[in-house]
Design a protein around this nucleic acid. Structure first.
Lengths: 213, 213, 213, 213
DNA sequence: GATGAATGAGGGTTCATTCAT
DNA sequence: TATGAATGAACCCTCATTCAT
């Protein structure tokens, strides 16, 4: 589970020179942060995993916190693409199905980063909060879209915000608890066909829960 | 957020004299573990929060890990009561409604401990695993009950295990992300009426998602 | 090896009341000091071995150092009886044979205390030195007796002081290295017949080395 | 007494750069271990004596125990050369005289390390034992050589193993008790001529004790 | 760029001893 | 007498970071 993820961020458009080493550091940081959290992570552990000396590591990074922030920032960037609604005109069934698919895919392919994000959230998002005014606006917009669909009778009159929570909770579960999922189901999550199965089940469950037509 | 929880375990049947100090320590530990995780928690922080010196703290506890294990153990004990099925003869609507209610209540009243448990799970449950053979058996029994209900046409043919996951994920969300929930909804979670509302919404969503009749 | 020794000192003529507990403490102290030295010994370890709490222990003793000094004092007292020459008129063969016998007996029966003494000596006897003006005088007297025997042709002209060293070194070895002796010889030292054998061999060796007639 | 020994190990063939600091640490460790034993030695004391901060010390060493093991290992390595028999064909007088000479020289030149070794032995050799299978084999071979000499009438029929013990005990005495020896004899041990005298006396005593011809 | 070294703070834990009770 | 609790120092060791080279 620890190293299962080829989880480099989209480094297009960064400085050229460092990139390779930075990628290694980044990956190491993701693994260590996912395993031990920000407070529990040690630069020594990150350096070891990256095959660098601590001094070398600190040449590339500004500080442990900065590295953590960078990881978070990348996650957030990817997140926007994942969690954004496509055109609401397509109706809830298509839009939400797409969204759930993207979210599940992200859970499967980036469990470690997904977990870092969740852990940060669970702590009350102290670091994220000072990085960005939390996307309350964006979330409210999404809720409004859902409210609109409800008005138009395209889905049951659920509380839009709660529905978004539930969607997030269920899909996130497959990233956060990959180990448990595999353990209880006796199926390695990485299996491609199984991923499709899980995605279908989750989609159906969520859509049905909200009475999406 | 850090100290919002009067979260002492059921100390009935412990030694008498200790209890008060131990309770303070316990509470402090819960808060620190919830905030920083096992690795990130410092005995200094726990001692400070409990109003003790580090040496004093270590007079009462065996070690940081032992304290963590004790917290986990208490959570697990409570958990069993919360997550167990009542008599399946009552049918899924009643049984699951009760379960969800209990789970939501626990999320509301013990968010910190709930979060510690979730964090431990997210890490692959390294400590829990060596404390108890993970309750695979219990989970399988629950799945069997659901399967039975499905056979009897009392609910839609969902994957029982996945349904349990979803139930856990959604209810857990309200503990793990209490801050976010409050933030996005502009409602302090502690409000009694709102808790009922949330519980109802969650219950309806989950039952509908599984087509419970 | 650790607890093989019923090694209470001659407590005749001490205070009456304490005696029993003191004896237990004393014995525990001997074992711990023998195992870990003064610096390495912990009052916790002594208290544990004595079946007392640390507080209780400190009620009976003045301090760790004082306890150590007491042990040393007792050893020294016993030592005087062991290492003193009987009437030189009996000649070296009888006098030295007796001495060696007493010394070997002490080594066998009080290996732990013997070892504590040796360890103190090896450290340069910092504690002993401030307890007693080292018995240089006594040792010089013994050397003088030997010198006299040499003059009278009763033994070879060895350096008297060195001979005393050697006598001490060889007999002490069987206390200090009881474990090694047993290990290399495949014979448990405690065996009675073997003790006689060892004593005979040592005696013969030492007397022959000094050409005692 | 504490710092009287230029006791660096044979560092030929080690890393170059480190060597100086490591040497200082090594020497400091030898002194502290000799004075207080493994348990009683503090890294603070070692650091102080080496002129380093504790953190600095720990940059160079792995742990206190590892440092201790390293010291022991070096001693053992030197020991092999010292305590090994040369060709038995030369007969006991030459072979044993050489051995005693080497052993005495080591006692004179490395009293602290010699003492550390002896102290380790006195404790039952817990650390050494897990570093090396105790050299029972080697010792048995030496005993066999002596037995052979006895059969050939080259020395008296002493117990070979005991003779080896005595040889060890007597020569070791001059390392373990250097302070006492100097104190009782009013002669600083370091005196070159005196060392020769002591060695001669010891040699004669031991050979005569075993009736070596 | 990269390395070995240093630093000062802090990690968890145990220490010997004292003090109410 | 005995116990639970407290204390302040010390224990070994690791921390994130910096700095010459």
């Amino acid at each position: 589970m620890t190293a299962e993820e080829a989880d480099a961020p989209a480094t297009r458009g960064r400085a050229r020179k460092y990139t390779q080493v930075l990628g290694v550091i980044y990956q190491a940081a993701v693994e260590v942060f996912a395993a031990d959290g920000l407070a529990g992570a040690s630069t020594q552990a990150i350096a070891d995993k990256a095959g660098l000396s601590k001094a070398q590591l600190h040449y590339y990074i500004e500080s442990k916190e900065a590295l953590y922030r960078q990881v978070l920032q990348d996650i957030i960037n990817d997140w926007i693409g994942v969690f954004g609604f496509s055109d609401e005109a397509f109706g809830p069934r298509k839009v939400l199905t797409d969204l759930i698919q993207r979210k599940m895919l992200f859970s499967f392919e980036h469990p470690l980063r997904s977990r870092i994000f969740a852990a940060e959230m669970m702590r009350g998002a102290p670091v994220i909060r000072e990085m960005m005014g939390t996307s309350k606006q964006r979330t409210n917009q999404a809720a409004a879209v859902i409210q609109n669909w409800i008005h138009r009778g395209l889905m049951d009159p659920v509380d839009p915000m709660l529905f978004l929570f539930h969607l997030w909770a269920v899909t996130q579960f497959y990233a956060d608890h990959a180990a448990q999922v595999a353990y209880f189901r006796d199926v390695p999550v990485s299996d491609e066909k199984d991923r499709r199965y899980l995605t279908e089940q989750v989609t159906e469950f969520l859509l049905k829960g909200a009475g999406v037509r």
